[in-house]
Amino acid sequence: MEKNKTGKYIQYALGEIILVVIGILIALQINNWNENRKNRIAEADYYCRILEDLELNEKLIDETSELISNKIKLCKELLSDLNKIPNDRSTILNKFVVALRQDVFVPSNIAFEDITSSGQLKLLTDLKLKNRLIQHSAFLNNILNLLQENRNVIIDRMDDFESMSEFGYQDVDYLKRELDREHIALLPKNNWTNDPNNPIFLKFQDNLIVYIAMLIRQKQHLSNLKKEMQEPIELLKDKKCK
């Protein structure tokens, strides 16, 4: 201080502080840039994975709809077979078991569920597309609930028969292979398929009509879902995942 060097020391110290601050700011900027770059890569990856899920679901819808169409055709054949008297109860019930098998539509929604459950939805910066994907997820869940309701109606109808042995379920091939003649002899011999006035005949015929109606509704729900998917698919193809 006696040699008048105080000013130089202060200038030197300020210069060091400024350099340190500039260095920190540059480091923070580089870190932010790197984080943004990683986020944009992750965002693009999510868009492509979501698109893959949607395109896979299109194929699953087409395959499930074709299976449903085959079941509708089989149920219509059953209606005709039932009303061709005399008929064979075993043949009718074996066809019915095939028609009754439920082909459950299980969509692939892994990517969107992953990004929402992990709290990374904020990575999607295209607000229009993000909102559209959220709407699609809600629509998909609603369709799945409607499809489940249809299946419940079918299951409830089948449970409506008071006696499955009276109905003749023992005539189905996999049960006939397991039951021997002694067990079969213990069961009712109700030949209801050849009696149009029999309550079981009437109920079975009615259930077939309801089943066909539920199958038609399933196809309509899947068709609506496929139509609803087209906009998010196009947005992803055109803007985000080429």
Rank of each mutant, 00 (worst) to 15 (best):
150 N>E: 14
177 R>Q: 14
202 L>I: 13
23 G>Y: 06
139 F>G: 08
192 W>L: 14
134 I>K: 14
199 P>S: 05
98 V>W: 01
175 L>A: 03
64 T>P: 00
200 I>C: 10
64 T>C: 03
169 Y>H: 02
122 K>V: 05
133 L>D: 07
127 L>P: 07
131 N>Q: 15
14 L>E: 14
234 E>A: 08
88 D>G: 07
157 R>D: 15
227 K>M: 11
175 L>T: 02
175 L>M: 07
34 N>H: 14
98 V>L: 05
92 I>E: 00
209 I>F: 13
155 I>Y: 04
239 K>T: 11
117 S>D: 02
208 L>E: 09
114 D>W: 10
235 L>I: 11
14 L>N: 12
167 F>C: 02
35 E>A: 04
98 V>R: 05
51 L>M: 00
240 K>E: 15
57 N>Q: 08
171 D>V: 02
32 N>I: 05
51 L>H: 00
151 R>A: 13
64 T>L: 02
221 H>P: 00
37 R>W: 06
23 G>D: 10
144 L>D: 06
127 L>W: 13
56 L>W: 08
53 D>N: 07
240 K>L: 12
224 N>H: 05
52 E>A: 08
67 L>H: 06
62 D>T: 13
175 L>V: 05
52 E>H: 06
177 R>V: 10
92 I>T: 06
126 D>F: 09
82 L>I: 03
177 R>I: 11
64 T>A: 04
115 I>A: 03
59 K>H: 07
158 M>D: 03
50 I>G: 00
178 E>F: 13
89 R>V: 04
186 L>V: 14
14 L>A: 14
95 K>Q: 05
145 N>V: 13
203 K>S: 13
75 C>Q: 06
125 T>Y: 02
232 P>Q: 14
180 D>M: 06
156 D>Y: 08
208 L>H: 06
226 K>Y: 06
69 S>C: 02
130 K>E: 12
192 W>A: 12
192 W>R: 13
86 P>Y: 09
116 T>I: 06
35 E>T: 10
204 F>R: 00
204 F>L: 05
169 Y>I: 09
224 N>I: 01
21 V>C: 12
138 A>I: 13
146 L>C: 08
220 Q>W: 05
135 Q>M: 15
70 N>W: 00
76 K>E: 15
12 Y>I: 10
169 Y>K: 02
198 N>M: 09
55 E>T: 05
91 T>S: 09
84 K>A: 08
205 Q>R: 13
170 Q>R: 06
233 I>P: 03
225 L>K: 02
162 E>M: 01
26 I>G: 15
142 N>K: 15
72 I>F: 04
206 D>I: 11
229 M>N: 06
242 K>H: 10
9 Y>C: 07
202 L>W: 05
43 E>I: 03
188 P>E: 04
107 P>H: 12
165 S>A: 08
54 L>H: 01
120 Q>E: 04
202 L>Y: 03
226 K>F: 05
182 E>F: 09
161 F>A: 01
132 R>D: 15
59 K>L: 09
207 N>T: 07
218 Q>R: 09
190 N>G: 11
214 M>E: 08
164 M>G: 00
55 E>I: 04
176 K>F: 13
128 K>G: 09
45 D>F: 00
132 R>F: 14
232 P>I: 11
23 G>K: 11
218 Q>H: 05
231 E>P: 11
208 L>G: 07
104 V>F: 01
197 N>A: 15
2 E>S: 14
140 L>H: 12
79 L>C: 07
